[in-house]
Design a protein around this nucleic acid. Structure first.
Length: 609
RNA sequence: GCCGAGCUAGCUCAAUGGCAGAGCAGCGGUUUUGUAAACCGCCGGUUCCCGGUUCGAGCCCGGGGCUCGGCUCCA
């Protein structure tokens, strides 16, 4: 889900960014001599450093720290490595009253980094830090950097430990790289789905209604309607059976599923509806689908049974985690559970995988990266079950000879999984479809079928989502398309604009023709300047503005003013309709799909070329 | 939930503790127009909520709500 992901740093830039973190820490100590230092690694796009400070930092502090950093960079001091014994290192940081560094060295006993009982220090100017390195040779190499933001962060990421103040910064090889990165950030901001959501009247979240609960306004509801009907059609074509299951369920079923025990903190409930019954709002669709499967005895002849639902679930998310449509408390999953035999599991996973790839292609997401996440340390089920499940997933991928990465131990406690990550139009990585083999619920619910020999046999339960949640997917789409939705999804496919009132009648006919072919079209016969009407329709992201003046009305044509691209005069109405139908049918991505400023990687590549 | 910042008209934002404003949107009128901003006027407020300090609070203090940037978590 991350927006600009703060993960691993670009390898080459690691020493530069890590060095920038050291320079920043030195500057912070100059400004706040009593500062206690946490850690300060390089990350994707930059670096951070955590500090324990006597007071909260202000933006003015960042300016002071940044200008102090520039002085140190200008002085071009060398970075020097030194080794101390563990004991000397402890004494060194105790003397300097740096308890977090002391804690780090004490931790080296049990973790990696002991390095034969020695600790290494890096020094530049009069700043010394505990550090493995590597660094650039001199501070002068840190040419292009900027401090970005202040944030709270728990010491060692543990919410029971003290909260430190983290300063994020970014550092690049050159000013041009930095500028490209800042332009990228501006583009990210421009596309923010919360901003576009307001401007384009897509969705609203109302405090009184409840935070984390999304109101789909009419425009975005049109998008959702298309996404849902296409989803249903595709699933019917592929042999899924679609169902509806209730939004609340008794406490008993969630005790059996283990959700209350494992997940209760995140569930809404209980609701006391009757004296002896307690109900909870569903956080997942799996138990309902299991009950659909178990509505009668199932024969092996019915398998694989693919049960799907656009299932709305509610989960309590902590208040600080909510984020527009991307992190909400009520959402609709495009959930499916495939019940099959082990003999069919690999083939079924393969089919789901193909469908997932098709989804990403249709929406124009690129560079899918596939992860196979294997058994975690803490898990349910036997090793034999995990072997079988992991193999089924692996063989499905191998059979397609796709490249994939193994995320060792990255599975969930009840299932290994295939995760697909993808890139959007400006190069950001998003979590895409996931496919899991559930090793828990079939046993808990005794999910079985009768095999060829008349024996009861445990069913395999494949769990998968493609959109994930419609809220999150659509929130991502808004940013991916920057609000410029392709014709098939667009809430406003055409606006018909008569140039003079004399053409109102003809314009009404054109709107009627568009609507009879199933297009979302509007007439704009308001007595306004034509240019004003074009401006407004453009602002609403209408795919086509169709102008009708004297010439058009006389010849039965329209002038096409597309949202993006060249205008066309005097196109026959029938030609326009069939062209639009073709565009809608092929789900063509719009020409303004990639109008973004170049990504950093592209800008850098271009500059070097 | 935690750290920090913020919340003023439908939207974007102003206002040293001293009469709460602008632009856009909306509404009324003028303009009848050939591809992104025509003109004139009008309307618009529990300054997030509750309490306190003060002659006087949008501004200061306390409590609560929500939003934003992160942390933790995550579809």
């Amino acid at each position: 889900m991350p927006k600009v992901e703060r993960g691993k740093s670009d390898e080459e830039l690691m020493p530069l960014r890590h060095s920038a973190a050291h320079v920043m820490a030195g500057a912070v100590l100059d400004v706040f001599p009593q500062a206690k230092l946490g850690i300060g690694p390089a990350i994707k796009d930059g670096f951070y450093y955590d500090f324990d400070l006597p007071r909260a930092l202000t933006p003015e502090d960042l300016e002071r720290i940044e200008s102090r950093m520039r002085e140190v960079v200008r002085a071009n001091a060398p970075f020097v490595r030194e080794s101390l014994s563990r004991e000397e290192g402890l004494r060194f940081f105790r003397e300097r009253q740096q308890p977090y560094k002391v804690e780090l060295i004490e931790g080296f006993d049990t973790e990696e980094g002991a390095e034969g009982g020695e600790v290494s220090l890096y020094k530049h100017a009069d700043f010394v830090d505990l550090c493995k390195g590597p660094h650039v040779a001199r501070t002068g190499e840190i040419k292009a950097f900027k401090l970005m933001s202040i944030a709270g962060a728990y010491w060692r990421g543990d919410e029971h430990k003290p909260m430190l103040q983290r300063i994020y910064g970014t550092a690049w090889r050159s000013q041009a790289d930095l500028d490209a990165y800042l332009a990228q950030l501006a583009e990210v901001e421009r596309r923010d789905h919360r901003k576009l959501g307001k401007e384009l009247e897509l969705f609203d979240i109302d405090d009184e209604l409840g935070s984390g609960l999304v109101l789909w306004l009419p425009n975005l509801s049109a998008v959702r309607e298309e996404l849902e009907s296409w989803w249903r059609r595709v699933h019917h074509e592929r042999g899924y059976t679609l169902v509806y299951t209730p939004h609340i369920a008794s406490e008993r079923i969630y005790q059996r599923s283990g959700h209350i025990e494992k997940y209760g903190e995140s569930m809404y409930g209980p609701l006391e509806l009757e004296e002896h019954q307690r109900f909870w709002i569903k956080p997942m669709n799996c138990p309902g689908h299991i009950k659909v499967f178990q509505s009668r005895v199932r024969s092996y002849r019915e398998l694989p049974l693919r049960i799907g639902e656009l299932g709305t679930v509610y989960r309590y998310e902590r208040s600080g985690t909510l984020h527009g449509m991307l992190r909400v408390r009520g959402f609709t999953q495009d959930d499916s559970h495939i019940f099959c035999s082990w003999a069919d599991a690999q083939a079924e996973i393969g089919k789901v995988f193909d469908l997932a790839m098709e989804f990403m292609r249709v929406f124009g997401y690129s560079d899918p990266v596939i992860y196979l996440s294997t058994r975690p340390e803490r898990r349910l089920g036997t090793d034999e079950m995990w072997d079988r499940a992991e193999n089924a997933l692996r063989e499905a991928l191998e059979a397609r000879s796709v490249e994939y990465k193994i995320d060792e131990g990255g599975g969930v406690f009840y299932a290994p999984k295939i995760d697909i990550k993808m890139r959007d139009a400006i190069g950001r990585e998003w979590q895409g479809p996931t496919i899991q083999i559930d090793l828990n619920l079939p046993d808990r619910f005794d999910v079985s079928y009768v095999n060829e020999r008349g024996e009861r046999e445990r069913a395999v339960m494949i769990h998968r989502v493609l959109y994930g949640s419609l809220e999150r997917f659509v929130g991502g789409l808004i940013e991916h398309y920057a609000g410029n939705f392709p014709l098939w999804l667009s809430w406003l496919q055409a606006v018909v604009i008569p140039i003079k009132p004399e053409q109102n009648e003809r314009a009404r006919e054109v709107v009627a023709a568009l609507r009879s072919r199933g297009f979302r079209a509007e007439l704009d016969d308001r007595p306004l300047d034509m240019r004003e009407k074009i401006k407004q329709s453009q602002g609403r992201k209408a795919n086509y503005m169709l102008l009708i003046g004297n010439r058009e009305a006389a010849s039965g044509t329209v002038s096409i003013r597309p949202r993006h691209g060249p205008q066309e005069q005097n196109v026959k109405l029938e030609d326009l309709l069939s062209r639009m139908e073709e565009e809608r049918k092929t789900k063509a991505l719009p020409p303004d799909f990639r109008v973004a400023t170049p990504t950093v990687a592209e800008a850098v590549a271009e500059q070097r070329a």
